[in-house]
Design a protein around this nucleic acid. Structure first.
Lengths: 148, 148
DNA sequence: TATAAACAGTTTGTATTCAAACTGTTTTAG
DNA sequence: CTAAAACAGTTTGAATACAAACTGTTTATA
């Protein structure tokens, strides 16, 4: 009997994770539309954030993929789509022709500057009386479930 | 300065949610492959679970969509794919020809019986010394972020 | 009782995801 | 120095997701 309960609890946990992700995506999408970036997706912002903050504006696709947790064929399409939108540039690395060097364009940098202040308004943290620490704790809890 | 930290914390929270979902999907997918159901997806199990436990074996597409949190066009493809795999049957409701009545097939029921005991082994809860209560609490926390 | 509105599902078009197979480049080893 | 292995990306094919436009059916309303 305990086991059956557990099964259902775990199932509901699964559903919560799937829903949370969908909900998050929709919230961010709405903010992006408000900003006039209706053709930019949450996933694209992952790439742009990485380039802007973690890679000092330049990285190859494999590196981006590893860091944002996607596989390399997903990256190919993401980079294709970001290229079309002129947010990044894709150049072959002349020193190692296997690599593409991805760089943020001016438009990409401008986007990040406009997007960032809006991100943290996705949830009204002050109304929720959530602190930085609360958020970091939750993130840590979520990450701990990944690493198990 | 506090605000900038918040922006990044929220960004990392986003990333954690996306990763957790990917990780979960992969874990379940592996279990499904072990069971010999390599062509069944996590999303399909959402539909099958709903039909089996919450709908007493029968529901229309809109009802399923509302309950598992997907939009109706997503449901159309899910039902198409579950039909191909003979896990469910789609029949027009003669009493209201706008509705499709979705029913679990024998194969679908058998699947659920085999799948369920395996779900809760996705995470080794005993090793993690996690109780039913811990899981339910986490689920509640996640859901609270959806409702905000 | 027509006509409009509401409802359930499908189709279309675009984006994402990923494994597997593939191309081309670079490195390693014999 | 050449063949094999490793590496970075792309392509392909199948699944999911969702908005918007569409078809048919039922219900409401004027």
């Amino acid at each position: 009997m305990k086991e059956k309960e557990l099964v259902h609890s775990i199932h509901y946990y699964f559903m919560a994770v799937l829903r949370l992700r969908q909900n998050l995506k929709q919230r961010v999408q709405r903010k992006l539309i408000d900003l006039g970036y209706e053709d930019i997706t949450l996933e694209m912002t992952q790439v742009l954030y990485y380039l802007h903050f973690d890679a000092e504006g330049e990285a190859n696709q494999q590196e981006i993929a590893d860091n944002i947790g996607k596989n390399k064929s997903s990256l190919t399409s993401l980079i294709d789509n970001l290229s079309k939108r002129e947010m990044i540039k894709r150049n072959i690395n002349p020193k190692n022709r296997r690599n593409n060097i991805i760089t943020l364009t001016k438009k990409g940098k401008k986007f990040m500057e406009e997007f960032l202040p809006v991100v943290y308004k996705t949830y009204n943290t002050s109304k929720l009386s959530m602190t930085l620490k609360d958020i970091n704790n939750l993130t840590q809890t979520l990450n701990s479930f990944i690493e198990i």
